[in-house]
Simulated scan of single mutants.
Amino acid sequence: MLDGRPLIDAHVHAARLPTLRPAWRRWAEEFGSSHPWQDLYDEDGALVPERVDAYFEGEGVDVALLLCEYSPRTTGTQPIEDLRPLLEHNPRRFKPIANVNPHLHYPVGAEVERQLGLGAVALKLHPVHGGFSVADPELYPAYQVCRDAGVPVVVHCGTSSFPGSVNRYADPAAVDDVLRLFPGLTFVLAHGGRGWWYDAAAFLALSREEVWIELSGLPPRRLPEYYARHDLKRLARKFVFGTDWPGVPGIARNARAIAALGLDEETLALVLAGNALQVYKGLTVPTQIREDRRMTDAGPFTDDVVRQIARHMNEDHAADCLTICRALGGRPGATAARMTGLDAVGIEFAVADGGVEHPVRIPFGERLTERPQVRREVVRMTERARAALGGGPDVPDGP
């Protein structure tokens, strides 16, 4: 949970680094510079399940949908099997999404069935990176399998800057053609028409019950601008929260930016988790706020230890607290910050912003097991925060 609300991130790239093209690494380093995604990997470029689980817990994410991708001409090949360590470590939090490329997989329907058999909760198509139209008849067997299984099809619907991308295939008009042939099939428009198709994506979502807009790669503060021709509060009821992690300043940061748009509480709850629960089968989230997070994640950090650390931070490092919260806590306009809590997976602050005090929680790069690790984590956070405030990117429009 984040700030008392369930949170589902429907768009997470949890790839092994050796499988990726250099452009992917540059993208993640540019747009994810304000959080420690590199620290979640081991020396061989594989994600460490314990670190990843602790990170997503610290970000307040109840469920993360993990993407694989078979796009050798652009980002590389990240097979679904590479996700197994995360899925086995925490099968409640981590769920896979299948991916097929009609240029690589035949028969495509059989490959979809195989990946669904591995636990996939949806099928992702990447026409821009794969170089194909979603209306290609080669994909019809895949659509039939998904409709029969009751799982949605996620389509990359937005421009991409990766070398080899074919952006014309991001046009959501092709989805409308497929829906005429496969009524009842659910589509999720990842990136929401980013670039040239915001109006088309919004029209499809508002006119068709089975079409949703997924917000990955879109700066939340700019959503009113992107969808200016539509009633945002009405359209938001068709939004599904997703980030495009790791190419994002922070999951909690983006979720809080959504909350700052002024949506009513019911609609906000739908965006952050409720719509995903409706679209994707087999997901579960907590139904109530845990009264004391530290009761579960305290580790070696007793109340007395936390008080000592907080006193030191607030008396000797108040400026660092403010820098961290401005850059990593999603509060760039903050005027003051004080540490209020800490456990094995994250640190908490009370932040003054706009004349109001807000709670902010920032995750550690890994679960801490001893007190000396706190200093190393805070130093790392401070260095990243200073680098981000020195000219790092805003919430990205990235690939």
Rank of each mutant, 00 (worst) to 15 (best):
L322R: 02
S216V: 11
D244Y: 04
R51T: 03
R376I: 05
P286Y: 04
L223R: 10
C146F: 00
A257F: 06
P6T: 10
R380C: 01
W212M: 05
D53W: 13
L328V: 07
G4V: 05
P85W: 00
D136I: 01
S34V: 02
E111L: 10
R221I: 03
G398Y: 07
L368A: 04
G341C: 05
D176M: 14
I251L: 02
G346W: 01
F56E: 02
Q308Y: 09
W27T: 10
M1L: 13
V188G: 03
G299M: 07
R25N: 14
C157E: 00
R84M: 11
A46Y: 15
Y169K: 15
T159Q: 10
R375E: 12
M295N: 14
R367W: 03
D62P: 01
A28W: 06
P152R: 07
E377R: 08
R376C: 03
A273M: 06
L65A: 01
G117E: 09
P393K: 11
P141Y: 00
L125N: 02
A54D: 07
L368M: 05
R114G: 03
D199Q: 13
P22N: 07
A259K: 06
G333V: 06
M313N: 07
A190G: 05
D343G: 04
V121M: 00
R114P: 08
F301Q: 00
A54K: 03
Y106W: 15
G274Y: 00
D297R: 11
W197N: 04
V211G: 02
P183M: 10
R326I: 09
K238A: 02
T296N: 09
R73T: 05
L322G: 05
P96W: 15
R311D: 11
R331S: 12
W245R: 01
K238L: 07
D264C: 06
F187G: 00
T75E: 12
S33C: 12
L322H: 01
F94W: 11
L342N: 00
I362T: 04
A310L: 15
M339V: 05
A23R: 10
L181I: 04
D292Q: 12
G242K: 04
Q373S: 11
Q115E: 08
V305A: 09
P359I: 05
W212N: 00
T323Y: 03
Q373H: 11
D199V: 11
R16T: 09
L389A: 12
Q288T: 13
S34W: 02
Y55P: 02
A352L: 13
I97S: 02
G355P: 08
D3N: 14
V145Y: 00
Q278L: 12
D231L: 07
S34H: 12
K281T: 09
R147Y: 02
P286T: 04
P49H: 11
E291S: 13
C325Y: 01
